[in-house]
Design a protein around this nucleic acid. Structure first.
Length: 404
RNA sequence: GUGGGAUUAGCUCAGUUGGUUAGAGCACUGGUUUGUGGUGCCGGGGGUCGCGGGUUCGAAUCCCGUAUCCCACCCCA
């Protein structure tokens, strides 16, 4: 038997696909309410795009990309995340030459070559929003509140973690401070942190090792080393969130794994889904557009991991809908099919193709979740009527076939 | 890439110190003697017990190998 590839699943369980489309529908509506419009970008892109945007130092680029050479000798890559492609499209379509703010949302398949576990797949889906051209911190607040709206609409519990990563004025200075701090504790920190110190020092703060964490409790905090602009923006952001009753937790160790983030960084986490608890992550990336050859354009975005939400989404109750048609006599099947087809012009209809007794039909109607069970038996065939039972209030009636 | 756990019916799982035709619940399906469901009762189909070796008179059960899945680390949505 041929099986699907590791970490690549089918979504065919009825419940799962219903949840999936319910999520897309809900998130799409809310994104539109916030002024975003849909963009679809290719799943395959030039490898260089991700190297330059996500960053060579990230694990995603370092070891998780589905990278290959195509038949035209192009170095290409299945997209590991959505932002890079959207930014590329933004620049390629010259939206960076316009003054107007562009707000775009997307959803689709992403690929990362990782060992699968709960909440992590090799092929997975993200829903994301990217806003270009707006440096006002109101936009940061707006996006965070939008994620909240989406999760609230779906009945999902979460906590929000918030941090500021600074900008090109304060981050490099802070990084130097941190590196010299790490140098002082060189002998005590773990191997991973030794490596991080060289590749992306800020990420040591995120280390899970208890001993490291004890040491980093005394490390210089970026929050206390922000330049005036970043500091003001962060304060404005938190007061905006307060004003809109959005609870948050300042987490100075929240370091997003992708190189392109600056200033506002946030993560929505759930305590109900195992180790992979981040259900949405985002932040500002004011330099990325110029890294990808566009005119300097401030930008901010987020992505939601759809699979991680699947077991958290509270679905609205499904109500009975439409008709079930059945025949109790071989001779009635053709007529039942005809009546059912007519009804399909305006209703959801399930038609039973086999002559069966009434009980069996009622069972089938119930299973089809129909509101009405419409039956043609010997009696009805003779009378030119159809027997209809309302499965919700259990009333029955005989209706002339012509009027049905 | 590194650990740990699992693999028996479509699904969730039992299976006693190795011993006859491998079980249950759910699901599916048929009936329930005059045409009434979701909630009664009776019946039915469906398993080379992940795969390959080995030990044994005999293996779902013991040993070795292998594959896959899951969970966790790393990292991330």
């Amino acid at each position: 038997m041929i099986r699907s590839l590791r970490g690549m699943n089918d979504t065919l369980e009825l419940e799962d696909s219903a949840r999936f489309s319910y999520f897309i529908q809900t998130a799409t509506q809310i994104a539109k309410n916030y002024g975003f419009r849909f963009i679809e970008t290719p799943q395959l892109e030039e490898t260089a795009l991700f190297k330059r945007s996500v960053g060579e130092s990230s694990d995603i680029v370092g070891k998780e990309m589905y990278q290959f050479i195509d038949k035209g000798e192009n170095d290409v890559c299945l997209r590991p995340e959505g932002t890079a492609g959207v930014v590329r499209a933004f620049v390629q379509n010259k939206y960076d030459r316009q003054e107007t703010t562009q707000r775009l949302f997307y959803h689709g398949t992403m690929f990362r070559y990782e060992r699968p576990q709960k909440g992590r797949l090799r092929q997975f889906h993200q829903f994301g929003c990217e806003s270009f051209g707006e440096s006002n911190v109101l936009e940061d607040a707006s996006l965070i509140l939008m994620v909240r709206d989406i999760f609230n609409a779906l009945g999902i519990n979460f906590t929000l973690k918030l941090n500021s990563l600074g900008d090109q004025n304060c981050m490099p200075q802070y990084r130097d401070k941190l590196v010299s701090f790490l140098d002082q504790h060189k002998a005590e920190i773990c191997e991973d942190c030794q490596r991080r110190k060289e590749t992306n020092p800020v990420r040591v703060l995120d280390c899970k090792n208890d001993k490291c964490q004890t040491i980093y409790a005394n490390a210089p905090k970026l929050m206390q080393n922000l330049c005036e602009g970043c500091d003001n923006d962060f304060k404005t952001l938190t007061s905006l969130l307060d004003e809109h009753e959005m609870a948050y937790e300042i987490d100075t160790h929240l370091v997003r794994g992708l190189d392109y983030y600056s200033k506002t960084a946030f993560e929505f986490v759930s305590t109900e889904i195992g180790a992979q608890s981040a259900i949405a992550g985002g932040g500002r990336y004011d330099r990325l557009v110029e890294f990808l050859d566009g005119r300097p354009t401030p930008a901010i975005g987020f992505a939601i991991g759809i699979e991680r939400l699947m077991e958290l989404i509270k679905m609205p109750e499904v109500n009975r809908e439409g008709y079930y048609f059945g025949a109790m006599d071989e001779n009635a099947i053709a007529k039942v099919f005809k009546l059912g087809m007519k009804k399909r012009k305006s209703n959801k209809v399930t038609i039973g193709y086999k002559a069966r007794n009434l009980k069996a039909h009622l069972k089938a109607a119930d299973k089809a979740n129909a509101s009405y069970c419409a039956i043609l038996g010997e009696n009805e065939l003779n009378n030119g009527t159809i027997w209809v039972k309302n499965l919700i209030n259990k009333t029955e009636s005989e209706i002339a076939q012509d009027e049905f």
